[in-house]
Simulated assay, not measured.
Amino acid sequence: MAWLRRSRDREQIRPLVELTGQLLMGEIDAASYDERFRGLFHLADGLDEQAWLILDTLFVECDCYVEDPSLRDQPIDLDEEGLRAAAVRALVRLALV
C-alpha cells in the first residue's frame, strides 16, 4: 500500500488504519469502531498537515455517527453505512498523501 510518504507517519497511524480495515471487512461494527477510533485518535498528533486533516475529518464523521436510527434527526447524522463510506474516503485520501 502506497500511503503516506514518511514511513514514520505510516507507522504512527498504523493502528488507526488497521482499525479502519476491520470496520470495512465487517470484523467490528460501527459503534465499536467509533469508540476505538476516538481512543486512538491521539496517534494523529504530529502528522504532516494533510494526513492530520484527513484523520481529523474522519474523527468529525465519527462524531456524526448515531447508532440509534430513532435519534438520527440531523442531515449530518450518519448510520453505519455512512460511517463506512467516510472510512473508505479517508483511506483513499491517505493513499494519495
Rank of each mutant, 00 (worst) to 15 (best):
R8E: 15
C62E: 01
V60Y: 09
W52V: 13
P69C: 11
S70Q: 13
E81G: 15
A87S: 12
F59D: 06
D48K: 12
F37Q: 01
C64P: 01
L16T: 03
T57F: 05
L71V: 09
V60M: 05
P69Y: 12
D9T: 04
G82E: 04
M1C: 11
R38A: 10
D79W: 04
L53W: 13
H42L: 09
G82V: 07
L78P: 11
I28H: 09
L55Y: 01
R89M: 02
G21K: 07
S70L: 12
L78R: 14
M25E: 14
G46A: 09
D45T: 09
E67N: 07
Y65W: 10
D77W: 10
I54R: 00
A87T: 02
D77E: 07
A85V: 09
P75I: 15
D79I: 10
G26R: 08
A51H: 07
R5C: 01
V60R: 03
V88T: 10
R10T: 05
D45F: 08
S70H: 13
A95Q: 07
R89Q: 04
L40G: 04
P69Q: 13
F37A: 03
D29K: 12
F41S: 10
Q74G: 15
A87I: 04
L58Y: 12
R38W: 07
Q74D: 14
D56I: 02
A87K: 02
R93W: 01
R14Q: 10
G46P: 04
L55M: 05
M25F: 03
D45E: 10
R6H: 11
D9V: 03
A44D: 01
L19R: 07
E27S: 15
G46M: 04
L96Q: 13
I13W: 00
S32M: 06
D48I: 12
Q12Y: 03
V92R: 05
W52N: 07
R89H: 03
V92S: 02
A2R: 09
E27Q: 14
C62H: 02
M1V: 10
L43Q: 15
D45W: 07
R84W: 03
D68E: 15
S70T: 14
L71N: 13
L24W: 10
G46W: 06
A44L: 10
G26H: 05
D9K: 02
R36L: 11
R38H: 13
D9F: 06
G21R: 09
G26F: 05
R5K: 09
M1I: 09
G21H: 03
W52R: 15
I54E: 00
A86M: 04
L23F: 07
T57N: 13
I13Q: 00
E67G: 11
F37P: 01
A95F: 05
A85H: 06
Y33I: 08
R38T: 09
E67K: 12
W52F: 15
A85I: 08
A51I: 11
V88Y: 07
Y65I: 11
G21L: 01
G39W: 04
Y65F: 15
